[in-house]
Simulated assay, not measured.
Amino acid sequence: MLVLQCIIVASIILIAVYAGLYAFGAWRWKMAARSLVERLDASQGVARSARYDAAEIADLPVPVRRYFQLALTDGQAVVRSADLAATGTFNLSLDTAQWKPFTAQQHVTSDRPGFFWDATIMMFPGVPILVYDAYIAGEGLLHPSIFGLFALGDLRGTGDIARGELMRFLAEAVWYPTALLPSQGVTWTAVDDASAQATLTDGPISLTLLFRFGAEGLIASIHADARGGTLGGNIVTMPWECRMSNYQRTEGMCVPFTGEAAYTTPDGDKPYFRGTITQIAYQFAP
């Protein structure tokens, strides 16, 4: 009987400790996330243009012009910020398959490129990895943490990490497509009838991604020749690609609700993100 009582008491203590860690970690994480989102919003400048005018796409490469004709409505307001929610699976390693379920919230700004991605990845039942991935005022940030208390890494800076995060912003601009317009700072260069290059500059960073368009004219994939990723315990540059599908019309725009991201490693194509947008809310220029 005494042994059973000790087991019960120990179990209650463990449950209380777990609940305390979970609650404190969540609270601490929420405060840090709020601070970063406020910093992101404060980094915004004056909107470049408040309305989309179809005349601005007249001289763009044919597949790009066709895309904007499908994705946007002439005269519509430009997206200034967006809030997205997503669910899906995330592979914790490119070396071995470790797919785990995730939920995420993302806040995006477009007057100056920026985003804050706040995700919960369930490493094991009841054991969450909280992750924020961000590009704020020219700085890249990546911080994973168990329970929001025990850091698994902390990358931040204005070098390669910032460049990689700005790539993510540009690739994901299909979710807030007015950000891809020339009036919003993107330069388009013809490649062929089904692809074109998009160049975006923010401060000292200038990068170019290859956009490929599907048979229906919408963006099917976005490709970078080199983006940093972790392979074999080391950060290396590899070809990187986002694939978009399941386009739906919302707020006068046609955007994809399903996406996949992958690196091309020496062992072949390695997807690491598969997600579905569950909610999008836009804030438009007045």
Rank of each mutant, 00 (worst) to 15 (best):
T120H: 12
L170Q: 13
R80Y: 06
R112N: 14
D53I: 11
A137N: 08
A16H: 10
M1T: 05
S110V: 11
Q69P: 03
T230E: 15
L149V: 10
G228A: 15
L200F: 03
L4E: 08
T258V: 05
P144S: 06
N91R: 12
F150H: 08
A104E: 09
G185A: 04
Y282N: 05
G25V: 07
D202L: 09
G217F: 04
R66N: 13
A226W: 01
S221M: 09
Y176N: 03
L152D: 09
I12A: 13
D202E: 05
V108P: 00
R243S: 11
P177I: 04
S35H: 11
G159W: 11
M31H: 10
L210D: 10
S81I: 02
M253K: 05
T278I: 14
T187G: 01
G214P: 06
H107R: 15
L142Q: 14
A285W: 08
G20Y: 04
N234C: 02
R51D: 15
L70T: 07
W188P: 01
G25Q: 09
L166A: 10
L94P: 02
R48M: 13
A54E: 15
G275C: 00
T265M: 03
L92S: 08
P266N: 01
D59P: 04
V186M: 01
T199V: 07
D225Y: 07
D133I: 00
M238C: 08
Q106H: 05
V37H: 13
A77L: 13
L60N: 05
A16D: 02
D154W: 06
A261Y: 00
G159Q: 14
L200V: 03
F273E: 07
T189D: 14
Y247D: 11
G138Q: 06
G157M: 10
S35V: 07
L142W: 15
T178S: 12
T264S: 00
L2V: 06
R112S: 13
V131C: 03
Y18S: 02
S245N: 14
P177K: 00
L200S: 01
L152N: 03
G259Y: 14
L40I: 09
V62E: 15
S183E: 07
P125C: 06
W117N: 06
M31N: 08
M122S: 11
V64H: 12
Y18F: 10
G232A: 09
P182A: 12
A220C: 13
R168P: 05
A285N: 15
S35P: 01
I7K: 04
L218Q: 08
P177L: 00
D74E: 04
T87S: 12
P61R: 10
G20E: 09
A23P: 00
T201R: 13
I13C: 04
A26V: 06
Q184M: 11
A104Y: 00
Q76A: 00
I235D: 12
M167F: 11
E251P: 02
A261F: 04
I129A: 03
I280K: 01
A47G: 10
D133Y: 07
L21R: 08
V186F: 08
E260I: 11
R249Q: 12
